[in-house]
């Protein structure tokens, strides 16, 4: 469904994304992990059309979308959320979600109806008439998700929807995401919460210093020494193996 080929993005002298190849198959949940500053969010902004890659191509649903502006990408059915949530503060939850719904529903009444349905789907039905500013962090994350869903996407890019949530809230949102996938929407997510990554994803990519250093089923990737090194620093994998050997 989504294919990135040799995608690079440069900021001044810094190569933030460096020749990334990435595939997301229809109907799957794919995760993108990696240490802070690895270039995950930059890769998202490039995929979603917020920035044009310096090199490489992005294809979505069989179409070359490289350099297409963000709104056009969204219209084709690929929508992103923001890591730092960006609600429409002075609008109510219902109005916030309706903005997303308007993409496919020109009539105001239809969009407001859709908003209500989507809110129920992500468990926000009780907060429909609250202003977005009054929501908790968890509420805002859900709103971000709801607005994106309301655009009726085929592929959803989720940028750390679980960051800042407590364990109970994470347990609540994991089934919501799974249900979205079961409803026929493909998902690519950036996540730091490894527990969620393990339980949700079918395939995992690991990005470090702008490059994909490993990919595969999440369990296999987590055991990859290169990945452990990237997260815990040079020599960590060897030390861990040594420690395990000592235990054995």
């Amino acid at each position: 469904m989504l294919e990135a080929r040799q995608v690079s993005k440069r900021f001044g002298g810094l190569l933030a994304v460096d020749g990334v190849n990435l595939d997301v198959a229809e109907g799957t949940i794919v995760s993108l992990i990696g240490p802070n500053g690895a270039g995950k969010t930059t890769l998202f902004t490039v995929l979603a059309g917020f920035q044009t890659p310096d090199e490489g191509t992005v294809r979505f649903a069989g179409r070359d979308i490289t350099g297409l502006p963000a709104h056009a990408v969204c219209r084709l059915g690929m929508v992103r959320t923001f890591q730092v949530v960006q609600p429409f503060g002075r609008l109510s939850v219902r109005e916030n979600i309706a903005v997303g719904a308007h993409l496919r529903h020109p009539s105001r009444a239809a969009a407001l109806d859709r908003a209500e349905a989507v809110a129920r789907r992500v468990g926000m039905a009780a907060m429909l008439d609250q202003p977005a500013t009054s929501l908790t962090v968890a509420g805002r994350k859900r709103l971000e998700l709801a607005r994106a869903l309301a655009t009726e996407p085929r592929l959803l890019l989720l940028d750390e929807v679980m960051a800042g949530l407590n364990p109970a809230e994470i347990d609540e949102i994991v089934p919501v995401i799974r249900a979205i996938r079961d409803g026929g929407i493909t998902i690519l997510l950036i996540e730091h919460v490894m527990r969620a990554v393990m339980s949700l994803s079918d395939h995992t990519y690991v990005l470090n210093q702008g490059r994909i250093i490993a990919d595969g089923p999440p369990r296999a990737v987590a055991a990859d020494p290169a990945v452990v090194e990237a997260y815990l620093g040079h020599g960590a994998a060897a030390r861990m193996q040594a420690a395990e050997a000592a235990h054995a």
């Binding site: 979603a48 917020f50 502006p69 963000a70 709104h71 056009a72 969204c74 219209r75 929508v79 992103r80 959320t81 923001f82 960006q86 609600p87 429409f88 503060g89 002075r90 609008l91 109005e95 309706a98 903005v99 997303g100 308007h102 993409l103 020109p106 009539s107 105001r108 969009a111 607005r147 994106a148 309301a150 655009t151």
Partner: peptide, 23 residues
């Protein structure tokens, strides 16, 4: 109208608006 809702969305947060398919 939808146009009005889009304007408010842009007023509140232009990046979000663009992400949701608003030109």
């Amino acid at each position: 109208s939808r146009l009005g809702a889009w304007m408010l969305a842009i007023r509140e947060n232009e990046d979000s608006a663009r992400a949701l398919g608003i030109d």
